[in-house]
């Protein structure tokens, strides 16, 4: 991170400049240690391809997604309207998020409250950069022949129909891509959605992340890829549960892309 500094909106506005795209980091990406690595890798990718971007830094706040899914519409709308004021204050038009929950909320639920932006998830940004030829998989770690399976985050896949973008990012690696039986529109939740991330599960016979990791591990992958900080936590915990952290890595699409390019 010493190679470049992360530009904030406040600094940019002070210089009278506007970014091409705002990177919405999200709470997990800001505070969760594991997710912070993904955040930095997204910045590295943005920096690498030379996109003029900025983050809100301390001006960013929770989108309100967990409050809304937990049934607290008041709190959600308070968060949303405050965020919209800030975004509109900086005249933001285009946003990339590091989290499918932030992506879904800003893209789908902010317009009804007056916040209209062109919102993409970071896997879509990576796909666009690959399509435009600005991003390849070269100069870094080789994933050639490695067995990778992709876990669809619910709010990216079923929630918004984004199935191909993250797979596109994996296809250029020349790796061996394997699909779980429950993939794409039939994908199984990691167990964190709907504010489950922040509570203990109800009584049952098994944890959802274990059910999911059983399915992933049955494929004997070297890497389980995902695109969501909450899936990351749930899947990593699942792998740890079987003491398989050495053999199986859980990585975000952004981390894999950054590594493949030696960023």
């Amino acid at each position: 991170m010493d190679k470049f500094t992360i530009p904030t909106m406040a600094e940019m506005a002070a210089k009278g400049e506007e970014p091409e795209i705002l990177f919405w980091v999200g709470c997990a990406g800001s505070f969760d240690e594991r997710a912070q690595k993904i955040t930095r890798d997204i910045c590295k990718i943005l920096h690498h391809v030379g996109i003029k971007y900025a983050v809100l830094g301390t001006e960013e706040s929770c989108t309100g997604d967990p409050a809304k899914r937990a049934g607290n519409e008041f709190l959600f709308q308070m968060q949303a309207m405050t965020n919209i004021q800030i975004l509109d204050g900086y005249n933001i038009k285009k946003i990339v998020t590091g989290c499918p929950h932030c992506f879904n909320t800003i893209k789908n639920e902010y317009p009804g409250l007056g916040g209209n932006y062109d919102v993409i998830h970071h896997s879509q940004l990576i796909q666009q950069l690959i399509d435009e030829g600005k991003l390849r998989a070269e100069g870094g770690e080789s994933f050639k022949g490695k067995k990778i399976t992709f876990h669809d985050p619910c709010y990216l896949g079923r929630g918004n129909g984004v199935y191909e973008a993250p797979r596109k990012a994996l296809e250029i690696l020349d790796a061996e891509l394997v699909e779980m039986k429950r993939c794409k529109s039939n994908g199984l939740c990691c167990g964190a959605g709907g504010a489950q991330m922040f509570k203990e599960p109800e009584k049952g016979v098994k944890d959802i992340n274990i059910e999911r990791i059983d399915e992933a591990l049955a494929l004997e992958p070297a890497i389980i890829a995902s695109g969501c900080p909450f899936c990351m936590t749930m899947l990593s915990d699942g792998v740890k549960n079987y003491n398989k952290e050495q053999e199986v890595k859980v990585l975000d699409i952004a981390e894999i892309t950054a590594r493949a390019n030696g960023l």
């Binding site: 991170m1 500094t5 992360i6 904030t8 980091v25 709470c27 990406g29 800001s30 505070f31 912070q36 955040t39 930095r40 910045c43 983050v55 830094g57 301390t58 960013e60 706040s61 929770c62 309100g64 967990p66 409050a67 937990a70 607290n72 709190l75 308070m78 968060q79 504010a195 991330m197 922040f198 509570k199 203990e200």
Partner: peptide
Amino acid sequence: PASLNAMLSNVENNGAPWKYSPADRFNWA
């Protein structure tokens, strides 16, 4: 559920579902 109430009050007071200070939000950089 009690843990969700805690999460909701964190969002309300800290702008994040966990009990971190909003001033530390940019520390990852």
